[in-house]
Deep mutational scan, measured.
Amino acid sequence: HNLTITQGKLFFHYNPKLCLSEIHKMEEVSGTKGRQERNDIALKTNGDQASCENELLKFSYIRTSFDKILLRWEPYWPPDFRDLLGFMLFYKEAPYQNVTEFDGQDACGSNSWTVVDIDPPLRSNDPKSQNHPGWLMRGLKPWTQYAIFVKTLVTFSDERRTYGAKSDIIYVQTDATNPSVPLDPISVSNSSSQIILKWKPPSDPNGNITHYLVFWERQAEDSELFELDYCLKGLKLPSRTWSPPFESEDSQKHNQSEYEDSAGECCSCPKTDSQILKELEESSFRKTFEDYLHNVVFVPRKTSSGTGAEDPRPSRKRRSLGDVGNVTVAVPTVAAFPNTSSTSVPTSPEEHRPFEKVVNKESLVISGLRHFTGYRIELQACNQDTPEERCSVAAYVSARTMPEAKADDIVGPVTHEIFENNVVHLMWQEPKEPNGLIVLYEVSYRRYGDEELHLCVSRKHFALERGCRLRGLSPGNYSVRIRATSLAGNGSWTEPTYFYVTDYLDVPSNIA
Rank of each mutant, 00 (worst) to 15 (best):
D204L: 08
P205L: 14
P205R: 12
N208D: 02
N208E: 06
I209D: 13
I209S: 10
H211K: 06
Y212A: 04
L213R: 11
F215Q: 10
W216R: 06
E217L: 11
R218Q: 10
A220R: 07
E221W: 14
S223L: 10
E224M: 14
L225K: 06
E227D: 14
L228D: 12
L228S: 12
Y230M: 05
Y230E: 04
L232M: 09
L232D: 14
G234I: 14
L235Y: 07
K236I: 03
P238F: 11
R240K: 15
W242I: 08
P244T: 07
P245Q: 15
S248C: 15
D250R: 09
S251Y: 05
Q252F: 14
Q256W: 09
S257R: 07
S257Y: 11
E258R: 10
E258P: 05
Y259L: 04
Y259Q: 11
Y259R: 10
E260C: 04
E260H: 15
E260T: 08
D261R: 15
S262A: 09
S262Y: 08
S262W: 04
A263V: 12
A263T: 06
E265M: 05
C266W: 11
C266S: 11
S268W: 06
S268Y: 06
P270F: 13
P270L: 04
K271T: 09
T272R: 13
T272E: 12
S274F: 02
S274V: 07
Q275L: 08
Q275N: 08
I276T: 09
L277P: 03
K278L: 08
K278G: 06
E279Q: 11
E282Q: 15
S284D: 15
S284N: 11
R286M: 07
R286L: 07
T288C: 10
T288K: 15
E290R: 13
D291P: 08
Y292C: 02
L293Q: 04
H294A: 14
H294K: 05
N295Y: 14
V296D: 11
V296C: 15
V297T: 08
V299A: 06
P300N: 06
R301Q: 13
K302W: 14
T303Q: 06
G306I: 13
A309E: 13
R313D: 06
S315G: 14
S315Y: 11
S315V: 12
R318L: 12
R319S: 11
G322H: 07
G322C: 12
D323Y: 13
D323T: 14
V324A: 12
G325S: 12
V327T: 08
V327Y: 12
V329H: 13
A330H: 14
P332V: 07
P332R: 11
P332E: 14
T333G: 14
A335I: 14
A335S: 09
A336W: 09
A336Q: 05
F337M: 15
P338Q: 12
P338T: 11
N339Q: 09
N339D: 12
T340Q: 07
S342A: 13
T343C: 05
E350I: 06
E351L: 14
R353E: 11
R353I: 15
F355M: 11
F355I: 10
F355N: 13
E356K: 15
V358A: 03
V358F: 04
V359C: 13
V359A: 10
K361L: 10
K361I: 08
K361N: 12
E362R: 12
E362D: 15
V365K: 02
I366T: 01
I366F: 12
I366R: 02
H371S: 13
H371T: 13
F372I: 01
F372V: 01
G374Q: 13
G374I: 09
Y375E: 00
R376E: 05
A381Y: 03
Q384F: 11
D385W: 06
E389R: 14
S392T: 03
A394L: 09
A395H: 13
A395Q: 13
V397M: 13
S398V: 11
S398Q: 14
A399N: 06
R400K: 08
R400A: 09
R400D: 04
T401P: 04
T401D: 00
P403H: 02
E404P: 02
D409V: 06
I410Q: 03
V414C: 03
H416M: 13
E417Y: 03
E417P: 03
I418F: 11
E420N: 07
N421S: 11
N421K: 12
V423K: 04
V424S: 01
V424I: 04
H425F: 15
H425M: 05
H425W: 12
H425A: 14
H425V: 13
E430L: 04
P431G: 06
P431M: 02
K432Q: 11
P434S: 09
P434M: 05
P434Q: 04
N435H: 01
N435I: 00
G436N: 02
L437C: 06
L437D: 13
I438D: 02
V439K: 14
L440Q: 14
E442M: 04
E442L: 13
V443A: 03
S444C: 14
Y445K: 01
Y445R: 02
Y445H: 08
R447A: 07
R447Q: 15
G449W: 02
D450V: 13
E452K: 07
L453T: 08
C456S: 03
V457C: 12
S458A: 09
R459H: 15
F462C: 02
F462I: 03
A463S: 09
L464H: 14
E465H: 12
E465Q: 14
G467R: 06
G467T: 03
R469K: 03
R471S: 08
G472S: 08
L473K: 01
P475Y: 07
P475K: 09
P475S: 08
G476D: 00
V480T: 12
R483W: 00
R483S: 03
S486E: 00
L487H: 00
A488P: 02
N490T: 14
N490L: 08
W493S: 02
T494E: 00
T497Q: 14
T497A: 09
Y498P: 03
F499T: 01
V501Q: 03
V501I: 08
V501F: 08
T502Y: 10
D503R: 13
L505D: 10
L505M: 05
D506M: 08
N510W: 08
